[in-house]
Write a protein that binds this DNA or RNA. Structure first.
Length: 478
RNA sequence: GGCCCCGUGGUCAAGCGGUCUAAGACACCGCCCUUUCACGGCGGUAACAGGAGUUCGAGUCUCCUCGGGGUCACCA
């Protein structure tokens, strides 16, 4: 049984990079009928953020990535919150000490700093010097009994090679001489993050460890721990970060690194997930639209990229527009409604709004700006009446409005059909290009060069009174 | 700096020794459609980081150089 885990720190936000890691981790397990476990890594209490765990729950649920075990639903390997596991790490470290694979260290920070400084003076790379490895058991006991603070360090062999095999990157080997004796248990009795990870992954029976690339170089060292315990090693799959550009990761200071940011900007969650899934993975064929279920069927590590991908809002926006266009009209309206309200057009004909807006909306937040002219006629210049392609200028526009206004005033019914028939009928009767007649009408109605929809839709949305008022205003400008 | 990893168009990417005078998508440009804009249709510009090898043959394998990232904490 494949068991993978997503182990975020509760920061209050869901970084897109984390989201993608969670996604791949989830998909990998689900593709193989395995289990996806959620573990909260909150050992750093100083970074505690109120409600942050809920953000994680809500985001995953919102997207549909349901976990099989986790803090809220429990499971056979709990607890699933690291701070609640505190007590279980130290005995493991002590077990290692007994086996000679770890040792107590009494060096103080000051002493370490001094030695570090000294070695950097000499231009050397600092590595813990195993100073306390040679303390006799008696002395260790004496100092512990005396209440002296201590840490427990991993005892890395001086020679030989540590290595592991990554599914994506292949065999990664590091010389043990390069490795530092890392701290396993801190002076406060708490485990270091890396040690806790090894213990948690093993005790939670995680079979496939999927995590960020930044652990690639240190994983051989963790593997030494598995060997020291005699535990079976997990399969490792390291994943690339999402970049802002060639040299920087997507980060919070760019203001666009979080999933929440994109929801606020009017992106659909399905589009975000779809786009993010494709950043660093491809299905091997030319498909690029996937629902979560389709991803579950299709996802495969062989399609994962080894080099980081640069995030391109352009393509996300395009993809979002594709999702928007595929929405059922009711769905489109449901998503657009808050923006209609914001723009003051919520009382207008929703069918027409949907018809003119849906093909033009890339992200929902664009709507208010696009329909602003419906609630307030912009202050516009008569130059707008001149358009070469439509063959209009102020004289032609004046002429057109002079016969359009009376005709529309006389319209018995102010419907789109009636407007359509009347307007185009007049163009035909006068052997005038549709565009020539419609241009001044639309400009008068909208006071804007570019509008969603044409003259008929706008007139219908505006209604008889407002339309005629605007047409007369337009005529007056000429 | 040591060690580890990565390197195909502006971006995402296919390619796993010959079918590469290198696919597809986004963006960009042009044309068509058209009631403005958008949608849609058609077409175009644009890449194997560089150099040595190996081989009959290299984007694909090896090495070096360059570029980029990661990592070297009692942070996670």
């Amino acid at each position: 049984m494949v068991r993978t885990r997503f182990a975020p720190s509760p920061t209050g936000y869901m970084h897109l990079g984390n989201l993608r890691s969670a996604l791949y981790t989830y998909l990998y397990a689900k593709k193989q009928g395995g289990q996806f476990i959620l573990r909260i890594e909150d050992t750093d209490q100083s970074r505690y953020v109120e409600g942050a765990v809920d953000v994680i729950y809500n985001t995953l649920r919102d997207i549909g990535m349901l976990w099989d075990e986790g803090p809220d639903i429990g499971g056979a390997y709990g607890p699933y919150v690291q701070s609640e596991r505190k007590a279980m790490y130290k005995p493991y470290a002590e077990q290692l000490v007994k086996a000679g694979k770890a040792y107590y260290c009494f060096c103080t920070n000051e002493e370490l700093d001094a030695r570090r400084e000294e070695s950097s003076q000499k231009g050397e790379v600092w590595k813990y010097d195993k100073h306390c490895l040679h303390l006799s058991p008696e002395e260790v006991q004496k100092r512990i009994a005396a209440g002296e603070p201590y840490v427990i360090r991993q005892n890395v062999p001086l020679t030989g090679e540590a290595s592991f095999d990554d599914v994506l990157y292949g065999h990664i080997a590091v010389d043990c001489a390069e490795l530092d004796d890392m701290v396993l248990i801190k002076a406060d009795g708490m485990p270091t993050y890396n040690f806790a990870n090894v213990i948690d992954d093993h005790t939670m029976a995680i079979t496939h460890v999927m995590r960020g690339n930044e652990y690639l170089a240190s994983t051989p060292k963790y593997n030494l721990l598995y060997e020291a315990f005699g535990w079976e090693k997990p399969v490792y799959i390291h994943m690339t970060p999402i970049m802002r550009d060639q040299t920087h990761k997507l980060s919070k200071r760019d203001g666009d690194a979080y999933y929440e940011d994109y929801l606020k900007k009017g992106y659909l969650r399905e589009a975000i997930v779809n786009y993010v899934a494709l950043l660093g993975w491809n299905p091997g064929d030319e498909r690029e639209f996937f629902t979560l279920d389709e991803l579950k069927e299709t996802f495969d590590v062989t399609g994962m990229s080894k080099s980081p991908a640069i995030f391109d809002v352009n393509k996300l926006t395009w993809m979002n527009a594709e999702y928007v266009r595929k929405l059922a009209p009711e769905e489109f309206t449901r998503h657009a409604l808050p923006y209609y309200e914001q723009a003051g057009v919520a009382g207008m004909d929703k069918d027409i709004l949907c018809r003119i807006l849906q093909p033009r909306t890339e992200i929902f937040t664009q709507i208010p700006e696009v329909v602003d002219f419906l609630t307030a006629l912009p202050d516009y210049d008569a130059e707008l009446f001149t358009n070469k392609k439509s063959k209009t200028d102020s004289a032609v526009s004046a002429e057109v409005l002079d016969f359009v206004i009376p005709a529309l005033t006389a319209l018995p019914e102010w419907t789109e059909e009636a407007l359509h028939e009347t307007l185009l009928g007049m163009a035909e009767a006068r052997e005038m290009k549709n565009g020539t007649l419609l241009w001044p009408v639309r400009i008068s109605l909208a006071g804007k060069l570019v509008t969603p929809g044409g003259a008929m839709e706008i007139a219908t949305l505006l209604g008889r009174e407002e339309s005629l008022r605007r047409l007369n205003l337009g005529r007056a400008k000429l």
